[in-house]
Nucleic acid binder design. Structure first.
Lengths: 179, 179
DNA sequence: CCGAGATCGTTTGATATCCTACGATCTTAC
DNA sequence: GTAAGATCGTAGGATATCAAACGATCTCGG
C-alpha cells in the first residue's frame, strides 16, 4: 500500500515514548501501568469500551436463557411491528439481513417466532411472535429494564436524557458522511 | 435535563403491537415506519449504534490504508509503552491476547512493529514500533484527530468532557458486576 | 534444586458480522 | 404483456472476537 503521498511529515504528534524507560514494567499480575496516551481521551475508544461493557452487563443478566441483546432487540421490534420482513427488521436493529438469517432460524426453532410467507410478496416472510415469544420477550424486558436502571444510576438520572440525545446526534451525524 | 422523574415508569409491558394493523407497510425503498418501541430510549441500544457509527466513520477515513481503529489503538499503545507484551497490550486495548496474535502478525509482516523476545521472559515478546510504524501511527493520528474533531462537533465541545466522564463511569461501573 | 502451578503466545473452535452472489419473485418501462 | 431491473431471503467467504487447550517457560515453596 504505502502510497507515495506518504512524504513523511511524520513525527507529528503522538507524544514521545517518554524517554527510554527501563523497559517499563508491565506487571505479571495483570496490569496497570500501561499508558494509553491520547487514547484515554478519545471519544471513539471510550465509546467502544462502554458499549462492550453494557453488552456484557446485559448478557450477564440473561446468561441462562442464552438470549443476548441482539435477540432481545429482534423480538422487541417484531412485537412492535408484527408482520414485518427480515430486511426491515435488519434495518431497524442495524444488522445486515444475512446476519439475521441464522438468528431468526434459531428463534423459530425455539418456537419464539413464526415466519409466514407474506401474501403480498412471496419472497419475504411476515415475522410474528408466538405466545412463547411474547413470554420470552416479557422476561427479557424485565432484564432490560433492570439493566437500563443500572446504566441510569451510573449515568446519573439527571443526565440520562442529555446523554441519550448526544448518542442520537452521533448516530445521525455519522450516518455515512463526515467532514 | 429533562428527566421528570424518569417520566416513563416503564410502560411496563412493551407496549402493544397496536391492534392488528393492515400488515404494516414496510416500504420497499429502504423504509422507515418501523417502530422501535422501548428500544428507542434504551441506553445500551443507542450506545451500540453510536459506537458502530463512530467505528465506521474512522474506518472510512483510513479506508485506503487498510488500518482500522483496532490497529490504531494497538500502534498507539505500543508507541506509548515500548517493550510491552502482547498480553499487556490486549488488556490495555480491551482485546483478548488470542485476538491480537493475527493482528500483530500482520503488523509485523507489514513492517510496522518488531517482536523481540523479552530477555527477562523468553515466553513473551517485547513489542516496538519500527520507524515505518511510527510513520503509520502519525498518519493514523491525523485521521484520528480529524475524526475526534467531527465527534466533538456532534457532541458539542462544551459537553465533551461530561460525555467522556459519563462513558468512563459506565465502563468502570459495569466492569463485571452490577445489581 | 525440583516440581506444582501460573503465565506467555498460539491454535482451534464457536459466534457474530459484513459483503457478494444467487435463485425466486416483484415492479416498472415499454 | 413482457422483459429489464430491483428486492427478498439464503449461502458462502472473509474478518473479528472470545474461550479453551496446549507447549514452553517462569516462579515459588520446600
Amino acid at each position: 500500500m504505502a502510497q507515495p503521498t506518504r512524504a513523511t511529515p511524520a513525527r507529528a504528534r503522538t507524544s514521545k515514548p517518554r524517554a527510554e524507560q527501563p523497559t517499563l514494567r508491565v506487571l505479571p499480575g495483570g496490569l496497570a501501568s500501561v499508558r494509553l496516551g491520547p487514547l484515554q481521551d478519545m471519544l471513539g475508544f471510550q465509546l467502544r469500551l462502554a458499549q462492550e461493557a453494557s453488552f456484557a452487563g446485559f448478557a450477564r443478566r440473561t446468561g441462562d436463557s442464552g438470549l443476548k441483546p441482539g435477540h432481545f432487540a429482534a423480538l422487541l421490534v417484531i412485537h412492535e411491528n408484527p408482520g414485518l420482513s427480515q430486511t426491515a427488521l435488519g434495518a431497524a436493529v442495524g444488522r445486515d439481513k444475512s446476519t439475521l438469517t441464522p438468528k431468526l432460524t434459531e428463534l423459530e426453532r425455539r418456537g419464539l417466532i413464526r415466519r409466514d410467507r407474506a401474501a403480498a410478496d412471496r419472497r419475504s416472510y411476515a415475522l410474528r411472535l408466538t405466545p412463547e415469544g411474547e413470554e420470552a420477550l416479557a422476561e427479557l424486558q424485565r432484564h432490560a429494564t433492570a439493566h437500563d436502571a443500572a446504566l441510569d444510576r451510573l449515568v446519573g438520572p439527571e443526565n440520562r436524557q442529555a446523554f441519550l440525545e448526544t448518542l442520537r446526534r452521533l448516530i445521525a451525524g455519522l450516518d455515512s458522511d463526515d467532514t
